[in-house]
Amino acid sequence: MRAMLLESSIRLNTHAAAGVTDVCIRAERLGKVIDGRMVLKDLSFEVARGMIVSVLGANGAGKSTLLKLLATLTSPTSGRLELFGRPPDGARSRARIGLVGHETMLYRDLTALENVMLTARLHGVPEARARALTMLDRLGVAERAGDAVRNLSRGTAQRVAIARALVHGPDLLIADEPFTGLDVGSCGVVERVFSEFRARGGTIVMSGHDVEQALRLGEHVLLLMEGRLASSEASHRIEASNLRKRIGGRE
């Protein structure tokens, strides 16, 4: 059974060579049915702690559903998921996960600072205000801390959303198209924050449509096609044009 499992699994173990061998995510034959439709089929993979993994695929390939599963926002219909070496156990698992969603997930009538502070306080972060201000500063939006989110541009709100996701110091960041709405300068700020997060041992699983960016940031790329794991390869072994062609062929 174990041999079969390993055979079907696609191990993302490039980081093992660097001495980081802890498995952050282990998925075994994950499946998800939504409204009678099989959205994810038989996904098996492992992600080592301290890696950045890019999830790519055409629209409707199942990227967002996979990220929701990893964030424990929904449960798999079949298969088994382990986070931090054990099955997800509600609040304890969620305390170690940060989520950047497809939408900003912010309250538009609260200020940027209030939004980030609320998450910090719900997580029991000491000195929540100072910590929230630090995170907003790191994302380059500290000067907008007192502005209501409804008055922020999409890009600024997105950076506040990323500050909110990281304010409690998670071990795993799940990011669904985190660069949505960001200009070139803001993308650079977010990429730097992600790199710092990874350097401190954090793991990132992110989706997106920008192939070059996914290859540049992610050490590994998971390619989803029609809910199946079509390939999993180290980024340095992937040709951007080939990857784009494979994704584009399905769109």
Partner: peptide, 12 residues
């Protein structure tokens, strides 16, 4: 609005 519920559900 803006998927705030998902953010709330992620709290421990």
């Amino acid at each position: 609005h803006d998927g705030a519920l998902a953010g709330l559900l992620m709290a421990p």
